[in-house]
């Protein structure tokens, strides 16, 4: 009896047409229900996620290229700015050089001019001083002469005489 049950299993006697039918129908119902309520939505969300990921990757790629472009732009701008700055410095240097030269030249001419004028003044002063001394000497000589030869000569004559001598002396010098 035991071996019989082991061999034939739970099927027992007779043909279980009802079980077959029931199993088939139940399986088809289960399939339909699961498709509608479980697998369908799950597949939908998985599909959705796939699309989401794909679009995210797309967006990331796009933003990366954009960033690359911006970086290139910035780099170019920086390079430009650097060359510009270089040019400005160069210019300023050049200008400074020119200005220095100018200032030096101006100072030189100025000093030259001052020297000239100083020389001129000195000359004038000397002239004046010589003239003053000449007058002094003349008047002193007249005084001395008048003391030496009192009343022999008039003051005017004497002065004339002395001036002549001084003139001679001046020319000899």
């Amino acid at each position: 009896m035991l071996t019989n049950s082991l061999v034939l299993g739970a099927a027992g006697g007779g043909f279980n047409g009802g079980d077959i039918l029931y199993q088939l129908i139940m399986f088809i119902i289960l399939l339909a229900l699961l498709k509608k309520f479980a697998w369908g939505p799950l597949m939908g969300i998985m599909q959705q996620r796939e699309e989401h990921i794909a679009s995210e990757i797309q967006a990331a790629e796009e933003s990366r290229t954009e960033a690359k472009k911006l970086l290139e732009e910035q780099r170019n701008l920086l390079k430009e700015a650097r060359t510009e700055a270089q040019g400005l410095i160069e210019n300023a240097k050049k200008q400074g050089d020119v200005q220095r030269e100018e200032i030096i030249a101006a100072a030189r001419t100025e000093s030259e001019r001052i020297k000239e004028s100083a020389k001129l003044e000195i000359g004038q002063q000397k002239e004046q001083a010589v003239a003053a001394i000449r007058e002094q000497v003349a008047s002193l000589s007249v005084l001395i002469a008048s003391k030496v030869i009192e009343k022999e000569l008039s003051a005017a004559d004497q002065e004339k005489l002395i001036n002549e001598y001084i003139q001679e002396a001046g020319e000899k010098r």
Binding site: G12, N16, G18, D19, Y22, Q23
Partner: peptide
């Protein structure tokens, strides 16, 4: 023939 045990367990 319906095996009710099968029907139940299915």
């Amino acid at each position: 023939n319906f095996n009710l045990s099968n029907v139940l367990m299915i």
